[in-house]
Amino acid sequence: MPTRSSADGILVLTGSYTPDSGGEGAGLAAVRLDPENGSLTPDSSLPPVPVSGASFLAAHPSLDVVYSTNENESGAVSAVARQSDGVLVPLGDPVGSGGANPCHLSVHPGGQWLLTANYGSDTTPGSVAVHRLDADGRVSGLTDVAIHEGSGPVVGRQEGTHAHQVLVDPAGRFVLATDLGADAVFTYRLDTRTGTLEQTAVSRFRAGSGPRHLAFSPGGELVFSADELSSTVTCHRYDADTGTLTEISSVPATEAKDITNQPGGIVASPCGRFVWVTNRGAETVAAFRVTGTSLQPIGEAPSGGAWPRGLNLAAGHLLVANQHSGTLAALRILDTGALEQPGPAAALPSVVCALVL
């Protein structure tokens, strides 16, 4: 989906937890980003779309279609289409995700398959699901579910598996799924004829680290992980022939002391020089400089609210979704990789993610 901008600014679609998923949000809502001053304004011309538990959004690579998780125990995924007048409308009914509490999804580069990470629950293991996408982008049949196995040492968080992200590597060869409960990344090959997954490898992380999200360097040689349970950011070497990760170095996600901190979103700059991570607890976005295969802290900026979760690049800014304060903020990226403190944020109850349209 190509980025749309106008005199009114850049269109951003946000996702939030709704009352039926433990939040207070509307589901999907549109705002406008002014790239000159970083201000964010709700777009009243585009009414909200009531998607249950819209905790992560992904755009189709060639169609005006956006996909959303429905993060709840029953688990589903939804598609919305952008009409010629810009209004977003549901594209078919929600489709079961093949597991509980889907929290991340991505579209395979070919545009024919939707990949979903199901976090799972106390009774349901984490898993990765595949759905076929029709020619108009509609979600059709569930073609496969790969169930994860494993656990970790952190009581209350790692008794079982919890898939937290699923993405395709830059070469399009492997599907990678992080698992917070198993301290691992599971590697698959996707059969693009049948929509089935074949597990080919498992990359083991430090015990108790709880990998949440990954970000690739522009060339794909390095992978950076936001480790939720150990509050670290780790640099890994990526083997494009096997789809495996090997840890090289690791640094604390925040300089704040004597607090419980959980890294959330992670983004690498297109130039490959910087990495940014949200810190839930410290309530900051931390900036790091990539020096060879190590990360050097640059500094931290306030996130513009409380419990910063989703993080995304937009026109020289970082969009930060602050779940507990219900605010979406834009932090300007300086040439050094450091971040300017955000200006006034947009009020969006229970917002957790943002996607540039």
Score class of each variant (00 low, 15 high):
residue 136 D to T: 15
residue 168 V to H: 08
residue 174 F to P: 13
residue 120 G to L: 02
residue 182 A to M: 03
residue 95 V to G: 09
residue 126 G to D: 09
residue 189 R to V: 06
residue 185 V to T: 13
residue 97 S to I: 04
residue 120 G to M: 03
residue 198 E to D: 14
residue 160 G to C: 08
residue 149 E to Q: 14
residue 168 V to N: 07
residue 162 H to Q: 09
residue 99 G to Q: 06
residue 100 A to E: 14
residue 168 V to G: 07
residue 96 G to F: 00
residue 102 P to C: 09
residue 179 D to M: 01
residue 195 G to W: 00
residue 185 V to P: 01
residue 168 V to L: 08
residue 103 C to E: 07
residue 112 Q to S: 15
residue 188 Y to D: 10
residue 139 V to Y: 07
residue 172 G to M: 08
residue 164 H to T: 01
residue 160 G to K: 10
residue 95 V to Q: 11
residue 174 F to D: 06
residue 162 H to V: 03
residue 108 H to N: 14
residue 164 H to P: 01
residue 135 A to Y: 00
residue 107 V to G: 12
residue 156 G to K: 09
residue 129 A to G: 10
residue 107 V to C: 14
residue 150 G to H: 08
residue 125 P to K: 11
residue 123 T to Q: 13
residue 148 H to K: 10
residue 115 L to P: 11
residue 127 S to V: 03
residue 95 V to D: 07
residue 161 T to E: 06
residue 191 D to L: 02
residue 157 R to Q: 14
residue 206 R to H: 10
residue 147 I to H: 13
residue 113 W to V: 11
residue 133 L to P: 08
residue 163 A to N: 01
residue 126 G to T: 09
residue 199 Q to Y: 01
residue 119 Y to D: 06
residue 118 N to C: 05
residue 126 G to S: 12
residue 171 A to P: 03
residue 96 G to R: 12
residue 208 G to L: 02
residue 195 G to E: 03
residue 182 A to R: 03
residue 177 A to P: 03
residue 138 R to N: 14
residue 118 N to L: 03
residue 107 V to S: 14
residue 142 L to Y: 07
residue 131 H to R: 12
residue 171 A to S: 15
residue 170 P to T: 03
residue 198 E to P: 02
residue 99 G to V: 01
residue 173 R to V: 13
residue 136 D to A: 15
residue 106 S to F: 01
residue 135 A to L: 11
residue 122 D to K: 15
residue 93 D to P: 08
residue 158 Q to P: 02
residue 158 Q to Y: 01
residue 176 L to G: 03
residue 190 L to D: 09
residue 153 P to L: 10
residue 128 V to L: 06
residue 200 T to F: 00
residue 140 S to Q: 15
residue 147 I to V: 15
residue 208 G to F: 00
residue 106 S to A: 14
residue 158 Q to C: 04
residue 146 A to D: 04
residue 130 V to R: 11
residue 172 G to V: 08
residue 167 L to D: 08
residue 122 D to A: 15
residue 170 P to C: 06
residue 104 H to C: 05
